[in-house]
């Protein structure tokens, strides 16, 4: 019980901390709106020139919902662990984190939950409502919303684990920007956040099926739109199973790697 209270205290601190940057959130929201308008016009032009309503099982509305909510999830899940960790190492602050009576991975995860909660209510939910209203019922409203929440939490854990798996590489290479851009590019492309996976050529799509990235964007969004048979339990459980599998695999790998990397830390001065 005390343990849970300790963890939720981190959540609370995170909520308060991220509420400090209200102007930033407002500007970010405004920037996102313009960005979404860009996405809208691009895909509208694309669908208009294609001459058909349905491409690869996706209508224009489906594609829009998919891409807008992918952006919303991207903002929701965004973590700066790679940056935080390398900054903490450069300043020596990492020692303080390591001395805390809590495992570093656990501490990092829970201190980000506050920002996640905020982003969910202040950015994701409004975006979701706007999209649902504009597309006029293209998003099914039923049990899929609940399934989506489960899938989203799993996606969050997978994303955290990818970050935690990548961040310690900085300890070995002293490269933050480089590592981060490689990670971001790969995740955004192969998770279907830039272009829905349904549009990928067959070979590439099958290859992507075996990678963890689709567990971050593609699976939650597919579940939300109730596509590919995810509206039935028989279709849904395998998808959630894939996510759960990646949670386990990546957590184990991340733990092993972190335990190895933490011995490599050299702090200059501190």
């Amino acid at each position: 019980m005390t343990k849970i209270r300790r963890l939720t205290a981190l959540t609370r601190a995170g909520i308060i901390e991220s509420l400090q940057f209200r102007l930033g959130t407002a500007v970010m929201l405004f920037g996102n709106l313009i960005y979404l308008a860009l996405v809208y016009f691009l895909w509208k032009a694309i669908y208009d020139s294609s001459g058909t309503d349905m491409v690869n099982g996706m209508t224009f509305h489906d594609t829009m919902i998919y891409l807008i909510l992918a952006t919303a999830i991207f903002n929701l899940l965004e973590m700066f662990i790679v940056w935080d960790m390398s900054r903490a190492i450069q300043s020596g602050e990492i020692i303080i984190h390591l001395l805390k009576p809590m495992r570093y991975r656990l501490y990092t995860f829970w201190s980000y939950t506050g920002a996640h909660v905020n982003n969910f209510f202040l950015a994701f939910v409004p975006t979701f409502i706007v999209v649902a209203v504009i597309t006029g019922g293209a998003i099914p409203m039923g049990m899929n919303l609940l399934y989506f929440m489960i899938s989203l939490i799993l996606a969050l854990i997978v994303n955290f684990n990818i970050e935690m798996l990548v961040a310690p590489i900085c300890l070995y290479t002293e490269s933050t920007w480089g590592i981060n851009i490689v990670k971001e590019t790969i995740v955004l492309l192969l998770s279907g956040a830039t272009i829905p996976l349904a549009f990928f050529p067959e070979g590439l799509r099958q290859a992507v099926e075996f990678l963890p990235f689709r567990a971050v964007y593609d699976i939650p969004l597919t579940v939300l739109l109730a596509k590919n048979g995810t509206d039935t339990l028989a279709g849904l459980l395998p998808k959630l199973g894939i996510q759960a599998l990646w949670v386990v695999v990546l957590t184990v790998c991340g733990n092993l790697f972190w335990n190895h990397a933490v011995k490599k830390i050299t702090v200059n001065g501190g």
Binding site: I46, V55, N56, G178, I181, P201
Partner: peptide, 28 residues
């Protein structure tokens, strides 16, 4: 190492942008 990884990262963003472009034109 940082220099090499950063350069690789930059090339990768361009390749990724190009793949996105190709996928779009593969469909439309």
């Amino acid at each position: 190492t940082d220099f090499i990884i950063s350069t690789f990262g930059m090339v990768l963003t361009n390749v990724s942008g190009f793949i996105t472009f190709m996928i779009l034109f593969h469909n439309f």
